[in-house]
């Protein structure tokens, strides 16, 4: 599965468009990490616990998006976008979406 955020991949041709695929997840950290973040807020800087949360959420959302694309019989997802929002205290939603397509290689001569 090729996952990119550009519209087309040079050297390949879109054979068919399978439609929009998406994956989202809402995650929270345990209260200990929330307290640690609260303390870190005194001096500022990176809130590592929340960065971790963000990375995990993103991986989960992308995995779900890829699952959907596979179910549709696509071999690539193009034009991928991410969106985030905070839902309640310490919980955040991450949403990934893109267009599932079937790509085929194009001969170099055909390109020229």
């Amino acid at each position: 599965m090729i996952v990119v955020n550009i519209e087309s991949i040079p050297g390949t041709r879109v054979v068919s468009v399978k439609g929009l695929v998406q994956g989202n997840t809402v995650r929270a950290k345990h209260v200990g990490k929330d307290i640690a973040a609260g303390l870190k807020n005194i001096v500022g800087g990176e809130l590592k616990g929340y960065t971790e949360l963000l990375v995990e959420s993103r991986q989960e959302a992308v995995a779900r998006m890829i699952e959907q694309a596979q179910a549709l019989g696509a071999n690539a997802i193009v034009n991928v976008r991410f969106a985030t929002s905070s839902i309640t205290a310490g919980a955040s939603e991450l949403y990934a979406y893109g267009t599932a397509v079937v790509l085929a290689k194009v001969d170099d001569e055909a390109l020229a």
Binding site: N5, A37, N41, G44, K48, Y50, T51
Partner: peptide, 13 residues
Amino acid sequence: STLVVGSTVMSTD
């Protein structure tokens, strides 16, 4: 070509 991502959470003092 591959998708690359970088993320962080930052706060102020």
